[in-house]
């Protein structure tokens, strides 16, 4: 059972206090967008073996959404950061690179 630290309130809590929201940093495609973009937004997920960005809500705590960068193989959590960004912050990317030099990057 994962242990995550909410970056909003600083509470380190167990997985049961959070709600998972799936892959992070998806770009929304709305009316008028091409079918392929909409399909990718709705259904295509990376499901990587390795570095993964996923959305979590501190559901039983402060109620805020954040993003966890973690390894799906070892479950190492590289960082958690507030969800109000469209891509991983630079320091997070740097921290992941330091631990996973072979990582192909988030995009």
């Amino acid at each position: 059972m994962l242990l995550l630290t909410c970056p909003h309130c600083g509470t380190a809590a167990e997985e049961t206090e959070f709600a998972n929201g799936g892959e992070a940093h998806l770009k929304r495609f709305g009316p008028g967008s091409p079918d392929a973009d909409f399909e990718a937004y709705m259904f295509n997920r990376k499901n990587p073996r390795g570095v993964h960005f996923e959305r979590w809500r501190h559901a039983y705590g402060c109620g805020k959404w954040f993003i966890a960068a973690r390894c799906t193989v070892t479950l190492e959590v590289f960082a958690t950061y507030p969800a109000q960004v469209t891509e991983p912050p630079e320091d997070v990317v740097k921290a992941i690179r330091a631990k996973r030099p072979d990582w192909e990057g988030w995009a």
């Binding site: 709600a19 929201g21 929304r28 959305r55 809500r57 559901a59 109620g63 805020k64 959404w65 969800a83 109000q84």
Partner: peptide, 13 residues
């Protein structure tokens, strides 16, 4: 409620 918070926090913050 969670749906509203999700959109407010993660898309239209």
């Amino acid at each position: 409620h969670a749906w509203m918070e999700d959109w407010l926090q993660c898309e239209w913050w």
